[in-house]
């Protein structure tokens, strides 16, 4: 019987490849966002509205993660933006090797900003580092203000939290004060941006925050 010391992070392989993704993106001066949310929270709609607001100022690309189909990548391409679709084939989150093969297909020399749309999931996506500069999450108003109580991990991992579909607030009992309080106790440093991609309300605060991140990355 032999005892063998390993003493390594379980996700060592994922983390090392993520680190190499990060170094590659850093060399190219690209700010990279990992956008997480449940299915139907409005990730693609928020991405399209963000692209619309920033496309004159920055060169943007999108990496789309879904279990199957390329419907999201087609929507992004229709907006004139380079997009790569990853199909995980059942895996509930993206991993760093999937991101690496997507990066190999993008014109990195001409990009300032990459948005990774992770698989719709409030749990598994938080644990996997992809090489991004920031993880950001979206919670939509119809999902309810109790989600930070039920899925604390994702709220803690996010550098910023978007509350989407605020145009539906009049028809849902979403207690924004309670929500802000819970997120504040889980992650006091994360700004919360209530947005409606439909009416455009709140989008400028969100895009201003993004511009600050992208500029900081370009200067670094």
């Amino acid at each position: 019987m032999t005892h063998i010391d390993i003493n390594k992070p379980i996700l060592d392989k994922n983390d090392r490849l993520a680190q190499s993704n990060k170094e590659l993106l850093h060399k190219k001066g690209i700010f990279t966002l990992d956008l997480m949310a449940s299915p139907g929270a409005g990730k693609t709609t928020a991405i399209l509205a963000t692209i619309e607001a920033l496309k004159d100022r920055y060169n943007i690309a999108v990496i789309e993660g879904d279990i199957a189909s390329n419907v999201d990548a087609l929507k992004i391409k229709a907006a004139g933006i380079p997009a790569v679709q990853i199909n995980t084939g059942g895996i509930c989150h993206l991993e760093s090797d999937m991101i690496r093969s997507a990066l190999d297909q993008l014109p990195l020399d001409n990009l300032d900003f990459i948005i990774i749309e992770n698989v719709g999931n409030l749990v598994c996506t938080t644990e996997f580092y992809l090489g991004e500069d920031a993880k950001v999450m979206i919670l939509s108003v119809p999902e309810g203000d109790d989600k930070p109580h039920k899925y604390p991990g994702i709220f803690q991992t996010s550098k910023a939290v978007l509350v989407s579909k605020t145009d539906t607030l009049p028809v849902f009992d979403f207690d924004m004060d309670d929500f802000n309080k819970t997120v504040g106790s889980l992650n006091p440093k994360a700004p919360i941006f209530p947005v409606s991609a439909k009416s455009g309300e709140g989008m400028s605060d969100w895009t201003e925050w993004l511009v600050a991140q992208i500029e900081a990355k370009r200067l670094s």
Binding site: M1, I4, I6, N7, P9, I10, Q156
Partner: peptide, 25 residues
């Protein structure tokens, strides 16, 4: 996620996020 003594948000996790393979027989 606040310091219970002084209320600061500037705290660093010591334990709780481990995800480590220690060893095997």
């Amino acid at each position: 996620m606040l310091c219970p003594i002084c209320g600061s948000v500037d705290i660093a996790l010591l334990t709780g996020r481990e995800l480590r393979i220690d060893g095997m027989e």
